[in-house]
Design a protein around this nucleic acid. Structure first.
Lengths: 238, 238
DNA sequence: GTCGCTATTGAACACGCGATCAACGAGTGA
DNA sequence: TCACTCGTTGATCGCGTGTTCAATAGCGAC
C-alpha cells in the first residue's frame, strides 16, 4: 500500500508532481469505485484540490478516463504476468494465474474491465486503449505458452487460440462475479476450464474440410461429415 | 419488426395500454442504446409523452431498469433456445447457438448484458434479476446438453460445468466484441471453443495421483488420471 | 524586500438527471 | 348537458455533471 495523496495537498506543487498526484488519485478512485466514478469533482475531492484544477490538468474527461484505465490494467497485467514461475510447469502456472485473476479481491479491476467494454463502445479514445491492453494480454499469454512449448515439445497446445480462449473465459467469469454469480466450486471449474483449453487437440494442419472433429474414437461423436455442417451453418446464419 | 409506438401517442390511453407502450419504448430504447440510456426523459421522448407520465407509471427508475433488462434478455434467450433443433446433433446445435450469440448483429444485447454486470454490482434490484436470468440460461443449456446425452449415451460431457464454461466463453467474447476486439477468424475460434468444452474428460473420479506433466503424445490425451491432477495443484496453490 | 510568474482558486454557465405536485382536460356515466 | 374521474401535463425543485475564466496567492528570482 503506497497510497498517495489522501487529501492533504500542500499548495503550489510543481506541475509534474501535481499531475502525478491527480493521476494517482484518479487511479485509486477508479480502482475502488469503477471508471464511472471518475468525475472531475470526485477526483478533485480525492486529491484534495479544486475541481477546476483537475480540469486544468486534464481538460477532457473522456480521454482522462482512457488514461486511468490504461494505468490500472497495465499495472495489474505486469503484476500477474510477473508472477509466472518458469521453473514450474505450464498447467500449474496458468491455473495459478486464472485463480489469481478470478479471486474476489480483484473484483475492482474486473469492474474496470467490464465498464471499459461498455464505455469503450462509444468512447473511441477508450476503445482504442482497451484493444491495445487486450492485445498486450493476448500476446503475453501467447508468449508464456509458446515458451513453455519450446521447453517441453511434448505439449500440444496452440498458443494463439489458447490465449483467446483463456481470456474469454476469465473475462466472462470475472464479469459474472461482479453480480456474485459463480459456480459452487469455482476452483474446480477453473481446473476444468484449464483442462478444456490445454487438453484439446490443436488443429495443426488447417485442412480444408471444415474440421474440428478429432480423429475418431473418444468421447464425442462428430464425424467430419457432421462437423462440416457448423461451418456452413455459420454462413447461412449470418 | 413490430416496433410499437414511435412517437404518436393518442391521449388518454387505458392505463394498461399506456404502461405497455412505455415498457415497449424503454425496451427498444435500451436495445438500441444500452441500459444507461434509460432516463425518464429519453423514454418519454421515445414513447411520445411527458417525462412526468413515465415517472408516474414507473416511479423508481432503478427498478424500471431491472424490469427492462429482464424483458430484453428473456426474449433473446427464448428465441435462441427455441432455435435448438432436436433432430440435429448436440455439437452442431451448440455451434450454431454460439455463432448466433456472437453475431455482430447482437451487439446490442451484448451491451445490455455487459452493462447489467457493471450496474448490477451496485443496483441490487438489477443484480438479483441478472442472477436469475443467468441461472435460467445455465439451466437451459444444461437441459439441452443433458437431453442430448440421454439420446446419445456415447457423449461424455458434464452438462453442469459445460454450461458454465459455455456461458463464460460466450459472455467473455461478447464483451470483447463491444470494442471490436476479435480474432481474425472468429468462426474457427468458436469451433475450437466448442471442442474445448465438449471434448474434455469429465472428472468423474477425482483420484489423488501427483505428477503434473501430461502423458505426452496424444493431442486430446486426457485420461481420467490427468483430469484429476489439476485438482491437487489447485489445493497446493491456494 | 519586492516583483513577476504561474499554480491554484471561486464562481458561474449550460446542461441533464430523478422526482414531485397542483392543475388541466378528455372521456364517461347520469 | 352537466359533473365527475383520472390519465396527463407543465412547472419546478435539488442535485450532479463538464467546462470556462477572471481573480487570487504562493513561490522563486532579483
Amino acid at each position: 500500500m503506497k497510497t498517495t495523496s489522501r487529501a492533504a495537498a500542500p499548495r503550489r506543487l510543481p506541475p509534474e508532481e501535481r499531475e502525478r498526484s491527480i493521476l494517482d488519485g484518479a487511479v485509486s478512485l477508479a480502482s475502488e469505485s469503477g471508471l464511472e466514478a471518475l468525475t472531475v469533482r470526485a477526483v478533485a475531492a480525492r486529491v484534495g484540490v479544486t475541481p477546476a484544477l483537475v480540469a486544468h490538468y486534464r481538460p477532457v474527461m473522456e480521454s482522462f478516463v482512457a488514461e486511468v484505465f490504461t494505468t490500472i490494467v497495465a499495472a495489474e497485467r505486469d503484476e500477474v504476468i510477473a508472477s509466472y514461475d518458469p521453473t514450474i510447469d505450464l498447467r500449474t502456472n496458468l491455473l495459478c494465474l486464472i485463480e489469481t485473476l478470478l479471486d474476489d479481491s480483484r473484483d475492482d479491476v474486473a469492474m474496470v474491465w467490464v465498464q471499459s467494454w461498455a464505455l469503450g463502445a462509444r468512447n473511441e479514445a477508450l476503445g482504442t486503449r482497451v484493444r491495445t491492453e487486450m492485445d498486450l494480454w493476448h500476446s503475453a499469454l501467447e508468449d508464456l505458452i509458446a515458451r513453455a512449448i519450446a521447453e517441453d515439445p511434448a505439449l500440444r497446445v496452440d498458443p494463439d487460440s489458447s490465449a483467446w480462449m483463456l481470456l474469454a473465459m476469465v473475462d466472462g467469469m470475472s464479469a459474472h462475479s461482479l453480480v456474485h454469480w459463480a459456480p459452487r466450486d469455482r476452483a474446480a471449474l477453473a481446473r476444468r476450464t484449464l483442462s478444456a483449453v490445454l487438453d484439446v487437440p490443436v488443429p495443426d494442419a488447417p485442412r480444408r474440410t471444415a474440421q474440428s472433429a478429432q480423429p475418431t474414437e473418444p468421447v464425442q461423436s462428430a464425424q467430419p461429415v457432421q462437423s462440416a455442417q457448423p461451418a456452413q451453418a455459420a454462413e447461412t446464419l449470418r
